[in-house]
């Protein structure tokens, strides 16, 4: 179960974080993670960040997704 996707932190305001993935923007609650900084990658589930991801591996993850789904330019 449990859909969650990695999103990059743009800004932090109290327990709310502004996050981004491929141009989709969302505000998420940071109640369940600690020490979040802009540039971090968070795993987002049902409006909350449920984990801070290792930045390199998160990026690798996103790269995989991107390369697998990207279609060549027409």
């Amino acid at each position: 179960m449990c859909l969650a996707i990695p999103m990059r932190v743009i800004s932090v305001d109290g327990n709310l974080g502004r996050v981004e993935a491929s141009g989709a923007l969302l505000t998420v609650a940071l109640d369940l993670v600690e020490g979040v900084q802009p540039g971090d990658y968070l795993l987002v589930h049902a409006g909350f960040a449920i984990a801070r991801m290792d930045a390199d591996e998160a990026q690798e993850n996103l790269d995989i997704i991107k390369r697998l789904t990207e279609s060549p330019e027409p």
Partner: peptide
């Protein structure tokens, strides 16, 4: 073809 932001929203 799908815009990347649309794909991300679909995944969310």
């Amino acid at each position: 073809p799908i815009k990347s932001a649309v794909r991300a929203a679909c995944e969310l």
